[in-house]
Design a protein around this nucleic acid. Structure first.
Lengths: 119, 119
DNA sequence: TGGTATAGTATTAAAAAAGGTACTGTAAAG
DNA sequence: CTTTACAGTACCTTTTTTAATACTATACCA
């Protein structure tokens, strides 16, 4: 993921939530549920263990999520959103809505083009 | 910039505004001004011509910005936000606010740590 | 005649991000 | 006795982004 020198507040904000998988991870955790490592893995079927670990660590580093280790075998580690992480909720929500509208707009456009071509 | 298959609305939305420079480009254009290529370049001193071109083309592709070419020499090309691009305004605004708060929080934390260390 | 401004493109190189595979230790289930 | 679940780590490769440099055409200015 891109890491920029702090030049701009946009960039600071985006660094925290961007990465191929972070928005999806946050989406699940923002539901308020506590999830174990493999539970998250099942929710994101295409992510590799390595990528999940890396992204979770970065989110933890920024205190957006909380990582709780239970010292037992087999291991148990739980992830949940922090109160601070909750402050991302409006951004993700707005972003999600825009994404939905953007996809609809594209499909509408595509449909229109096909209409014209087959006329 | 990362381009994902459409798996998730977050990703669709993020693809449109992420890229090392897109938020800053949009920030300037969302002021409503029309800017020429080199004017933008002067506003983003560290960007290379190539990167500016690439990002502008991507934003144009998504109809977030408009590119108007004046057939004259030396060349003149003007960039401005589209009406559709304006719909990104709330996202960028929320993002910016969060960025500001996030930086403040980090600095506060850093100050606290230094306080403890020197005690 | 030489230099400057404009909006780029082309090419190559470097850096960053993501992906793939194999491996770990241990308890419990079958 | 073998397999499975768990939560990773280590190592290496591939892909994607970004950067750096040189180059284009032509009108205008001195």
């Amino acid at each position: 993921m891109q890491k920029n020198p702090v030049q701009c507040q946009f960039v600071v904000a985006l660094d925290s939530i961007v990465g191929k998988w972070k928005p999806i991870i946050l989406y699940h955790l923002l539901q308020g549920k506590t999830l174990r490592f493999n539970e998250l893995r099942r929710l994101l079927p295409d992510i590799t263990q390595r990528m999940l670990t890396l992204h979770l660590r970065e989110l933890e580093e920024e205190e957006i999520i909380k990582r709780v280790i239970y010292p037992q075998i087999p291991p148990k580690v739980e992830y949940s959103i922090t109160e601070y992480g909750m402050s991302l909720s409006p951004i993700l929500e707005t972003l999600h809505q825009w994404g939905v509208a953007h996809v609809e707009r594209k499909q509408l456009k595509k449909a229109n083009n096909e209409q014209i071509e087959t006329d």
